[in-house]
Amino acid sequence: MYSNEQLQQLFRYGCALTTNEQQAQDLLQDAVESCLRQPPNKQAALMSYTRTIMRNRFIDAARHQQRFPQDTIDDEQITLDMDVRMLEDIVIDENELDSLWALLEPLEREILFLWAVEEYSTAEIAIQLDMPRGTILSRLHRLRKRLQDQASGISTGGRV
């Protein structure tokens, strides 16, 4: 049903959500068992389906602990040419990313994972997360600003 590579990829998705390998393992195991009880209609959708289950479980648990913020759409102006490509010109070193990673919200890490590792487009991310494209664009805009601000803060020994 799942290849080892797919399980590793799902585990990494869990790590992106939780930033904790043990929690990611639990999340993956729960989701896989849930998929086995009620498999998706198409085998092709297995990965996306499993990720959705992992995400829902994570949100349930996090909301229970009041850690997962409700998403709100920004009032800031979203231009039509915004896309995940807006992240492509950002360069960062490993230490900076490590420092930033834990400061990002789960949704921001999730978007980064889907963009960088799964190589999803904005539209595909919106479908995977079942969110309006505008919400994703807004998050991307905020994420880019945050990455740039915090990366420059780190490089100058600033506020992070």
């Binding site: 585990f11 390998e21 492509e88 360069v91 960062i92 070193d93 990313l97 963009w115």
Partner: peptide
């Protein structure tokens, strides 16, 4: 060494491996 954000995220995530 700085690298593009997507490569940096990919490298970071590849370090997480199920035993």
């Amino acid at each position: 060494m700085k690298k593009p954000l997507n490569q940096a995220v990919k490298t970071k995530m590849s370090q997480h491996t199920l035993s």
